[in-house]
Simulated scan of single mutants.
Amino acid sequence: MLPLLKSADDSGGDVGSVINHSLAALAEMADSGLPTEASAYCFQKLLNEAARKIYDGWSDWRLSLLETCANLVNDGRQRKIFERQLNSTVEELNDSWSSRYLAERIAAILHRLILKFEGEVHAADFLEQNINFPLFREKAIEAAMANKDYDRVERLALEGEQRDRGMHGLINQWKKARYKAYRLSGQLDKRRNLAVEFILDGSFDYYKELKESYPDKEWASVYPGLIKALEEQKGYQDNYPSILIEEGEQKKLLEYVKARPAYITRYYQHLLPVFRNEVDYLFIQHILDEAQRAGNRKAYREICSLIRQFLKIGSSEKARQVVSQLLAIYPRKPAFKEELLKIKF
């Protein structure tokens, strides 16, 4: 199938999908417990296939073949042959992100072989030597967590956060490990401080956990500083309105929506009935803004859906007025007029 990729348009991913399914089938075969002769035969065939020049430039698929091949290594001779070829693959890597990802996969293969042929002690040493690979750091953290060695979890996680700066997903993963360690070890102050970091990064779940860690009276003195810190950030995080709703901060929520009229459909129920007039005004503003941008029947129908939503919250007279206003503003849009006249009051 690989030669086909050089001449075919695979923008739909069909050829790649066939290759991936084939590789998955090979992996399943290798795990099925083949007889010794069949296993040795498949081992050599896969090793030869992975060595072909046709896989130059397709390192991910070459490595998938080698990962499957590793499951068929059954003795020292095969291991020596296999590792020789695996090391030649390592030599082709550079400093790119994709190469670092492939290097991690290669190290994971070697780790499995060491565990299989040399035992847990040597495998643990290899893992420690390659701890800067995220996969290995994750394994080490899991082991430390299982052993209730929370100081080690904290150290490994902090080292990961330092090393993987700029990689938000990994940093978040290491912080979550730290948070769990602090929770399990009863380190409340550290847990609270880390929860604040998560909150300032947009988490609502950690906000709820932080709040639950305080008695009500103490939380009343903590909350103002936290919401102020969120407000002082560049741009609001997604958790900001959720926090305002949780704390019953209707005035702040109204100010937030005023700056973003399109959000009125999301938050109006939390502003009614106290801010009835403001909700009506923001709904109308949002409808008029959308009408200004609309240029096809689909968009007109969406605007009419907004008007029907406006009707449902008890603003029938103002809904009539906005329909009349739209008919007057856009007399040369017959499709829009047709959709507007379908609205039943």
Rank of each mutant, 00 (worst) to 15 (best):
I114M: 05
D60A: 15
G314K: 10
V73I: 07
I171E: 14
V121I: 09
S11G: 06
L288R: 15
K258V: 07
R155Q: 14
R77D: 15
E231A: 12
Y214L: 05
E118S: 14
I54K: 11
L156G: 01
E249R: 13
A259N: 12
A294T: 03
P273W: 03
E138Y: 09
R293D: 11
E218P: 06
L272I: 09
R183F: 01
L188P: 07
S203H: 03
N147R: 12
E83Y: 04
G166N: 06
A143Y: 01
R112C: 03
G166F: 05
F336N: 09
R165N: 09
L5S: 08
S96C: 14
K318S: 10
W219K: 10
P261R: 09
D10M: 03
E255A: 12
L194H: 01
A30Y: 06
L66D: 07
S59F: 07
L2S: 02
A30Q: 13
A108Q: 06
P224T: 04
D151N: 08
D164S: 09
S203W: 06
D238K: 15
I287D: 03
D60M: 14
I343P: 07
L158V: 01
H21Q: 15
L327D: 07
E255L: 12
P334S: 08
F283M: 07
Y281R: 10
R105A: 00
A107V: 10
R79I: 00
H111N: 09
P331L: 10
F345D: 08
G235S: 08
D164K: 14
Y267R: 11
R297H: 08
A259M: 08
N132L: 15
Q44N: 13
L47E: 04
L200S: 03
G57W: 02
I199R: 02
F136G: 02
A335N: 14
I54G: 00
K228S: 11
Y240V: 13
W174I: 04
P134R: 12
S185K: 03
I81N: 15
S39W: 06
V73R: 12
A107R: 05
L253E: 10
A143Q: 09
L271Q: 05
E142S: 05
K298V: 01
D31T: 11
F283N: 06
G33E: 12
A177V: 00
L34H: 07
H168N: 15
N87Y: 13
V222G: 05
E67A: 03
I303M: 03
S316P: 10
D216E: 14
Q162W: 01
M1I: 12
S64R: 14
N172P: 04
I307N: 02
I243N: 01
N87F: 13
E197W: 07
V153W: 04
K53I: 13
G225L: 08
N130E: 10
Y150V: 02
E218S: 10
K175L: 06
G12I: 06
R52I: 07
I243H: 04
A40R: 14
